[in-house]
Nucleic acid binder design. Sequence first.
DNA 1: CGTCATTTAGTTGTGCGCAATTGAATTGTG
DNA 2: CACAATTCAATTGCGCACAACTAAATGACG
Lengths: 174, 174
Amino acid sequence: MTPTPATDSTSTTPDGTLDNVLDGDLLSLDKQICFSLHAASRAFNGVYRVLLKDLGLTYPQYLVMLVLWERGELPVKKLGEHLRLDSGTLSPLLKRLEAAGLVRRERSARDERSVEVRLTEEGRALRERALEVPRRIATATGFDLDELRALRTRLDRLTTALDEAALEETPGCG
Amino acid sequence: MTPTPATDSTSTTPDGTLDNVLDGDLLSLDKQICFSLHAASRAFNGVYRVLLKDLGLTYPQYLVMLVLWERGELPVKKLGEHLRLDSGTLSPLLKRLEAAGLVRRERSARDERSVEVRLTEEGRALRERALEVPRRIATATGFDLDELRALRTRLDRLTTALDEAALEETPGCG
DNA sequence: CGTCATTTAGTTGTGCGCAATTGAATTGTG
DNA sequence: CACAATTCAATTGCGCACAACTAAATGACG
């Protein structure tokens, strides 16, 4: 059972430009891209879920820990900037990490609006057990390091383009 | 503000194999891949959200409609196979589509376990308004058609590899 | 100094994704 | 036929993503 849909009605276009493509063909290609991206994202998520289960972490929690392992401690705001997540997502997530004993949250003394997130000893220790995760992920993709880097570059390019487009599409920003 | 993290401590490895890479380096690369993929997925989702708002659809609902526009009618089970989603996700989603008047759900006469999902006239009509979405998405990515197809191929390869790896990782399937 | 805009976390509500379970219908087997 | 196993949709529970809002602290400005 391959993830590839049956039809590929766009294969008749000679060049790669968008202008002389039928809308129906585009809708079909869009369907394929949608599915592929959506499926890839969830498949990736699924592999992480399996690997992270031993560590008691979800995938987004792992992302937070990766940042904290690198930086040690930082306010929720900065964390959100690194991860492109807002407090609506981070606040409950951090509470769960705190409940798990991996993290402490305390109001900053110099700015009482801010909340500092720092690793506990237990949280710092978890890094050792996490070290094997990336290798197993890399193996799971079937890609070598160069391919992984290339994929990263391509995804970043995609994200940048999409973010810019999103800004232009948003009503009131044109 | 680029999505690219600061360090790239993996750039010292000469070949693309995994064997002679330090765990710390891999953890760093993993962080970058994680972020890139997660960010790309959400950025894509965000652009769709903006474009689909006019149609009153969420991104997953759009995926369902794409399948229905192509097939017209099919049971929940088949829909789930196409989208790789289970009834836990599809059941409430389909209820919302039904509440929106785009879809009807009715028990199959020949097999009362199965539920047939079919487009209403309104649901069928929505396709016309959806035809412009793919072109705007394609434009938003900044990729041309060939690049989009290449991306799709790469993502499908990734998904296949990850799914296989997930099966092997799952306890009790080795 | 007081007032107002901004910054920062947190809360609420909606929807998705997935695991686990339930319950009904069907199929297979003796 | 009776009974066990399977199939299918729905439900429940948890966590994440995001929009919209609240509340408190800070900073800027008259």
